[in-house]
C-alpha cells in the first residue's frame, strides 16, 4: 500500500504532468481509504487554482512606482533616446 508521503508526491506531480497508469491506480486505491490525503488533494486543487488565478492578475493593489523610481527610469530612457536608441 502506498504511503501518505508517496501519495502526496504523486498528487503534486499529477498537477504538472501525467502519472503512469500504474501510479494513478495506486494513488486512486490509496485515496479510497485515506481521508487525510483526500483533504490534501482538495487543498492542492485550490492552491493550484489560486496560483493560476494569481498569474493573470497584476497584483490588485494600490502599489505605484515611487516618484524617485519613475524619475530615474525616465532619465535613463531620455538618455537612450538622446543616444538614438
Amino acid at each position: 500500500m502506498l504511503s501518505c508521503r508517496r501519495a502526496s508526491e504523486r498528487l503534486s506531480r499529477a498537477l504538472d504532468g501525467k502519472l503512469a497508469p500504474g501510479e494513478r491506480l495506486g494513488l486512486w486505491a490509496h485515496l479510497l481509504l485515506c481521508g487525510p490525503c483526500c483533504r490534501y488533494r482538495k487543498q492542492l486543487r485550490m492552491l493550484h487554482e489560486a496560483s493560476m488565478h494569481n498569474a493573470d492578475r497584476a497584483a490588485n493593489t494600490d502599489d505605484r512606482l515611487s516618484e524617485s523610481a519613475r524619475g530615474r527610469i525616465a532619465g535613463i530612457l531620455e538618455q537612450h533616446l538622446a543616444d538614438g536608441g
Binding site: C4, R39, Y40, A50
Partner: peptide
C-alpha cells in the same frame, strides 16, 4: 510526515469556504 510516512497532523478541511469568494 512521521517515520511511518503518515501525516503527523491531518490536513485541515478547506471545504467550509467558497474558493471563488476567497479569491
Amino acid at each position: 510526515f512521521d517515520r511511518g510516512s503518515h501525516w503527523k497532523k491531518t490536513p485541515s478541511d478547506w471545504g467550509h469556504g467558497n474558493p471563488a469568494e476567497d479569491m
